[in-house]
């Protein structure tokens, strides 16, 4: 921080040497460039959301106009009502919440415990175990789907929220462990050592000393994992067959039938899409900084 401050160019002190006007011009040109690229960036990112939202409030009769409508003449909520009649929206919404909250809670708890052991306790084979856990992130989900289905089936875990939570939390473990290990490594171990000397036992140290220190990191990973599991399609698609386990992403595929464009209910699909986007948007508004730092930490270290 301090190096940044001192190294910043001291422009006000620069007097009026001949290059000054030129420099000011390039600076002005530079800031125009920045704003122009910001506008392009914002349009490219925002356009799909605008279009999904507009489609969700456009009467379905108007939706299939050529050329497409960019603003509905009479905005309506009928698409939302129709969508809720086509699929059991509230049940799926509840299932999605259970799935996402359960998976992120289990993954953060299991990863937090493992990360503490890997970062703080030296035991034979700890490096190999860490590598094996981290590298298993590269194993494609789809490559083990059939054996996993058979195993989960024999444990009667197919079609249950528990089964889905087990597989989803496990999927997110490697990245979560990696991020938390790098976080714990930055917390000085002296505080824990002092607590040991004062006679605290391991459980007390973990719950009273370590947990408060890494709570922000745990919360960040909870948010990130909530988003990832809220968005998950493949696992619920394969492992959830009844109304009480299917999630919203499965509901979205149920709305699309394999027919032509005409028969696809784009009005209902965009209404459901809006409902799937809003919770994620709220989380981002609320936790933007934490999420950015969490993502960068996991990927950099």
């Amino acid at each position: 921080m301090s190096t940044q401050l001192t190294a910043r160019p001291a422009q006000p002190a620069q007097g009026d040497h001949p290059g000054q006007t030129m420099e000011r011009l390039t600076r002005f040109g530079g800031s125009i460039l920045v704003y122009v690229s910001f506008i392009i960036f914002a349009v490219v990112i925002g356009l799909p959301f605008y279009f999904i939202f507009i489609s969700s409030i456009t009467p379905s009769s108007e939706l299939f106009n050529i050329p497409p409508t960019y603003l509905p003449s009479a905005p309506t909520l009928e698409n939302y009502l129709k969508m809720m009649e086509s699929i059991p929206f509230l049940t799926y919404f509840r299932n999605s919440l259970i799935f996402a909250i359960g998976s992120s809670a289990v993954s953060v708890i299991a990863a937090g415990m493992a990360a503490y052991a890997l970062a703080r306790i030296r035991f034979p084979g700890s490096n190999i175990l860490y590598l094996a856990l981290i590298l298993s992130v590269a194993l494609p989900q789809i490559a083990v789907l059939v054996p996993m289905y058979q195993t989960f089936n024999s444990f009667r875990l197919v079609n249950t929220p528990y089964g889905l939570i087990i597989m989803m939390s496990s999927l997110m473990l490697p990245f979560t462990i990696m991020t938390l290990v790098s976080f714990i490594n930055q917390v000085p171990a002296e505080i824990e050592e002092a607590a040991y000397i004062d006679g605290a036992n391991t459980a007390q140290i973990i719950l009273r000393v370590v947990l408060p220190l890494i709570r922000p990191a745990l919360f960040t990973m909870f948010l990130i994992n909530f988003i990832i599991s809220w968005n998950e399609l493949l696992y619920p698609l394969v492992f959830a067959h009844n109304v009480d386990t299917k999630t919203l992403s499965v509901g979205l595929t149920e709305l699309t039938d394999p027919g032509s464009t005409y028969t696809k209910p784009w009005d209902q699909m965009s209404a459901l899409s809006v409902f799937m986007i809003v919770p994620v948007l709220l989380i981002i508004l609320f936790g933007q900084r934490m999420i950015i730092s969490g993502l960068a930490r996991g990927a950099l270290k």
């Binding site: 910001f38 960036f41 914002a42 990112i45 925002g46 799909p48 959301f49 279009f51 999904i52 988003i227 809220w230 968005n231 399609l233 992403s249 979205l252 595929t253 699309t256 699909m269 965009s270 899409s273 799937m276 986007i277 994620v280 948007l281 989380i283 981002i284 508004l285 933007q288 999420i291 950015i292």
Partner: peptide, 19 residues
């Protein structure tokens, strides 16, 4: 810009693909 940039990453791939 930093808030906007998170949004495409955070929305469901299913929503993006169908949209």
């Amino acid at each position: 810009a930093r808030a906007l940039v998170l949004i495409p990453w955070a929305i469901p791939m299913a929503v993006a693909a169908l949209g």
